[in-house]
Design a protein around this nucleic acid. Structure first.
Length: 253
DNA sequence: GCGACAG
DNA sequence: ATCTTGTCGC
């Protein structure tokens, strides 16, 4: 395994994505998802990894669980991890998923009553080269409903950061406004969402697993106090604080 | 060769 | 992802 070239590794990974892709569920499967006000939804998870500058292998994996709809912290877990896989665009999941899964498993083992009913993931879901981004990967392996929320546009399947795209962004008037991200095939892979009235730059929402795009969009919007939805923002903030606390010297060299 | 490249 | 201070506005 360690003698594999990056070329062979990528082929291996592509094949794994293709097989897991068949297990993906792109529709609502939960009762709360059908409710106009998400009645029955009480816990939303957020996951993220924070990195140390100039360090390719040490990172902090973070899971938070917030109450819904008040978005108050119910649970958090920070864990230093050693990364095995390199970052290659289109294969982020192979780098990060193992540690996010471990965090979910620790929670399931110790306080199963706090398991999130849906997880917001820092990265794309279906909006991906092969329609199987990090949020899909984590969703299929955990079995939990997942939503992908990316902060930057991934230019895939004919979708590009063109003048047309910029005009569409400019046309978003208020928080909750959105426009579809349509692949060359005609399939809508995700939506660009103006997440709050104050933010100009949209976030890119896509289906991870066991949720429809419309529901994913509505959920993401209702989780936004700022541009980045609160579960992901909290995971990001708290994992950074953890690194500062445990690796204060990591700011040198 | 040039531009893109989630995190 | 990470590097970083100030600045403008409410």
């Amino acid at each position: 395994m360690s003698h594999m070239s990056q070329d062979e590794l990528v082929k291996q990974w592509e094949s794994q994505q293709a097989s897991m892709r068949q297990l993906l569920v792109e529709e609502d499967t939960e009762d709360w998802q059908r409710s106009p006000d998400f009645t029955g939804l009480e816990r939303v998870g957020g996951v993220d990894l924070s990195y140390i500058k100039g360090d390719d292998v040490n990172a902090c994996a973070q899971l938070v669980v917030l109450s819904y709809p008040n978005l108050e912290l119910l649970y958090e877990d920070s864990q230093m991890v050693t990364l095995n896989a390199p970052y290659i665009a289109g294969f982020l999941a192979f780098r990060e998923t193992p540690y996010l899964l471990e965090a979910l498993q620790r929670l399931e083992k110790t306080q199963p009553n706090l398991l999130p009913q849906v997880v917001l993931v820092d990265g794309n879901g279906l909006f991906h080269y092969r329609e199987f981004g990090l949020a899909c990967h984590l969703g299929v392996l955990s079995g939990l409903p997942c939503v992908g929320v990316a902060k930057n546009l991934l230019q895939v399947q004919g979708i590009s950061n063109s003048q047309q795209h910029q005009l569409q962004i400019a046309s978003l008037q208020k928080g909750g406004d959105s426009f579809p991200l349509t692949a060359a095939s005609g399939k809508v892979l995700g939506k660009a969402l103006r997440s709050s009235d104050r933010s100009t730059k949209p976030v890119y929402v896509s289906v991870g697993h066991r949720i429809s795009l419309e529901t994913a969009l509505r959920l993401t919007h209702t989780c936004c106090r700022y541009r980045v939805p609160e579960p992901i923002r909290q995971a990001d903030v708290r994992s950074r604080v953890y690194l500062r606390l445990h690796f204060p010297a990591a700011a040198e060299s």
